[in-house]
């Protein structure tokens, strides 16, 4: 029974993380899946969201902190808004010089912004506390729920140990509910967008930019809107991460965790399909967690284990592209794509 409770508690923890990645994957699907924007700096928007939310709703700097500003202890929802706003602004600034050019330039510029932001996080201690990161971030309603749960356990001493263990983790259930609710709302929102005229223009741009611009659409404006909106969603993902982990530092936003795994999630799940984006997040995060169990049995050092797991994910990505590029849940096409006559 104890093992069972352990597994349940682990699954809740797992689903919170995978769900947070699902938010990032949905954001990327809007950019890449719908519009064909090649953003390989997801980590930039994810990190900016996490830090913005932490600075808005986190505690003020304490005596050991290197920070001079931030920590306004505002409500969680304002943190989320700040996250979306900050990530959106960064996306806007990066979109201006790159979205008129070939996809390669956006890709390189997004790598650049992700690395630059990581440098800022490391170096600008007055704002970010440098490599030590931001600690003791508040989780919404944590005190109330946790106090309630411990109080319940104390007033019911006859509870069986496994039920006790389950109740004591009540907060995780609540946070899982928050993440799932956010995923669901985003999913509904994006589905409506996809079916709207706006979403159709985005797909037209992805299929053929020249044709889209010839039919009178301001391709640049549409691409910029998709980039910014997708980045805002990624920023929200960052906020959800920050307030659950309660601690963020530049290492949380390294290219692998911040960008690469999100791409694998979307491609495996199904580029252009929102359900696929969410499914991919759970499957890939499951694979990632699963490799942790397996490599644990191998006679390897911790860094070797980590490297091996990343190699597995890298090979997974290349294999999907070779074998099933459309992903687990392929995009539902409105109409069959016909190639243009070169004549």
């Amino acid at each position: 029974m104890e093992l069972f409770v352990g597994i349940i508690n682990y699954l809740v923890f797992f689903a919170i993380t995978a769900g947070t990645y699902g938010v990032l994957s949905l954001g990327l699907n809007l950019q890449w899946g719908y519009t064909g924007l090649f953003n390989i700096g997801v980590a930039a928007f994810y990190a900016v969201g996490a830090y913005a939310s932490a600075l808005v709703s986190g505690p003020p700097p304490d005596m050991w902190d290197g920070r001079l500003v931030g920590g306004f202890e505002l409500p969680f929802i304002l943190g989320i808004l700040a996250a979306a706003l900050a990530a959106g602004i960064i996306a806007f600034l990066i979109g201006i010089p790159t979205l008129r050019l070939r996809a390669d330039y956006l890709a390189i510029a997004t790598i650049g912004i992700a690395e630059t932001i990581r440098m800022v996080l490391k170096n600008e201690a007055w704002l970010t506390n440098g490599v030590w990161g931001l600690q003791q971030l508040p989780s919404p309603f944590y005190d109330a729920i946790h106090r309630g749960a411990t109080g319940f356990v104390q007033t019911h001493p006859d509870l069986s140990p496994w039920l006790r263990a389950l109740v004591l983790k009540a907060y995780n259930w609540f946070y899982l509910f928050l993440v799932i609710a956010a995923l669901f709302l985003l999913y509904l929102f994006l589905r409506r967008l996809a079916q709207s005229p706006w979403g159709r223009v985005l797909r037209a741009i992805r299929e053929d930019e020249v044709v889209a611009s010839m039919s009178g659409k301001n391709v640049f404006a549409f691409k910029l809107q998709a980039l910014v909106l997708g980045a805002m969603i990624m920023g929200i993902g960052g906020a959800f991460y920050a307030h659950y982990a309660r601690f963020i530092s530049p290492t949380s936003f390294e290219p692998f965790y911040g960008t690469f795994i999100v791409w694998v999630m979307l491609i495996l799940g199904g580029t252009g399909n929102n359900k696929g984006a969410i499914l991919g997040a759970f499957v890939v995060w499951g694979t990632w967690a699963g490799t942790d169990f397996i490599t644990g049995y191998l006679p390897l050092s911790p860094t070797q284990e980590a490297s091996l797991r990343i190699i597995v994910i890298g090979i997974l990505l290349v294999s999907i592209l070779l074998v099933r590029p459309q992903g687990l849940l392929p995009e539902m096409r409105q109409r069959r794509r016909t190639p243009r006559t070169p004549e």
Partner: peptide, 28 residues
């Protein structure tokens, strides 16, 4: 024939695997 962006995504996968293969054998 799969298109430029697919190839670029592939290079990212190879980049990561290659870097971590080096880290696996020689450490960080």
């Amino acid at each position: 024939k799969a298109g430029r962006i697919t190839l670029m995504i592939t290079t990212i996968g190879i980049a990561l695997s290659m870097r971590n293969a080096l880290q696996f054998f020689w450490g960080p």
